[in-house]
Design a protein around this nucleic acid. Structure first.
Lengths: 212, 212
DNA sequence: TTATAAATACCCCAAATGCGGTATCCAAAA
DNA sequence: TTTTGGATACCGCATTTGGGGTATTTATAA
């Protein structure tokens, strides 16, 4: 029986997965945690064969959780779970050493397959993912319109803007030149293709870049 | 036993929920479909006590699915499922006649409660949602606390601003002088005590002035 | 009837923005 | 090693904004 640990900030999702794995699948979810920080403790306490790790989490995200685990010499294979097929995350996860990668909109069959493979330290990539990775290594930049790849600094700037700061105030807040703030603002507005700061804030809200 | 139909484009999520509901919960998921278009057929074939409807779907979204169902005289109570607590969707769903509203990051207990209540045609709103709705109706119907009683015109202006229009564009959109738009903007910003349009949009979002 | 609020329109002016650039440093990736 | 991306900084310039006003019309409430 494969013993799995789920790290996901959506209890419903995690619980759903837990009750989905039946005995006949040979998979048992022995622990569910909402936060990567709690992982090392669990791994000390019990034997875990595979970690199902959600990549989009608020406090400490999937990538950071992996770093934390590896820094503690964790040897347990990791299957990344994600809603989005963002190449950015795929690259990060692979680089960090994820054993598998699957989308949350996969079927139950695919998921069981993924967990089983990963637990045996074989690589598993969801067809949609491997297709993307394949395209990527082919040199196709078709996976480019990622759109929402704002840097941390840029998000910080947007947040300040939404709080009523102008470029000068932001520059003082972040201890950088006002010129730099203006450059950031220009870059952001180009990336998100908006014409005004007001629209920028709306978009940021709608895409949960800020506010949530 | 409550017979539920799940409409969700994430099979994993739907399957997870299905296997989560145990006999002792009194809920049985009798069908799962990925697409609202398939709903009428299911409803003809079997008795359904409650529909769990994901609001964020690609082909035909939750709101559109509700419209489709009601256009076919569907009497089955609907529990909306969503990842985000966007007032935009909440308003839409309530207006269309959803019986309940729950977030996907709810606990299993909350979900069972929600499904049970909804199936009995009682309203169910996740605490986070009811709080938001309460705030919304308070901000709209109770006597105004001095601050945010904006006129319809003013709301219209804010909406335009959040869509990236400048004063000139708004004046053309609303067939009024640019001077008038500027006067409105000044009045709005005084009323809401904000310093920039970006902050204005943030506040408008937070107070659910816009978001439709 | 008389306030009051909303929508309309206009003035001035300093400050900020948006848009076009260029350029350096540095770390990470190829 | 070279390239790339992010963060930093600067210049110029036309347009827009925000803040300070005033004022008329109209509809509604006191």
């Amino acid at each position: 029986m494969i013993k799995a640990l789920i790290i996901d900030d959506h209890p419903l999702f995690a619980e759903g997965m837990k009750s989905m794995f039946k005995t006949e699948d040979g998979i048992e979810v022995v622990a569910i945690i909402q936060n990567g920080h709690l992982a090392p403790k669990i791994l000390e306490e019990q034997i875990i064969d595979v970690i199902l790790l959600d990549i989009d989490m608020p406090i400490i995200d999937g990538i950071a959780t992996m770093e934390l685990l590896f820094s503690k010499d964790c040897q347990v294979p990791i299957l990344m779970l994600t809603m989005h097929q963002s190449m950015k995350y795929i690259k990060e996860a692979l680089k960090k050493g994820a054993q598998g990668y699957i989308l949350k909109d996969a079927s139950k069959k695919e998921l069981v397959e993924a967990v089983t493979q990963t637990a045996q330290r074989k690589n598993y990539f969801h067809p949609k993912i491997s297709e993307k990775v394949f395209d990527y290594f082919r040199g196709k930049k078709t996976t480019k319109p990622e759109g929402q790849n704002l840097s941390e600094r840029e998000v910080e700037i947007i947040s300040c803007l939404s709080n009523g700061m102008n470029s000068k105030a932001i520059s003082e807040e972040l201890f950088i030149s006002e010129h730099t703030v203006r450059t950031h603002r220009k870059n952001i507005m180009h990336k998100l293709r908006v014409k005004t700061s007001a629209e920028l804030v709306r978009l940021a809200f709608e895409r949960n870049i800020i506010g949530v």
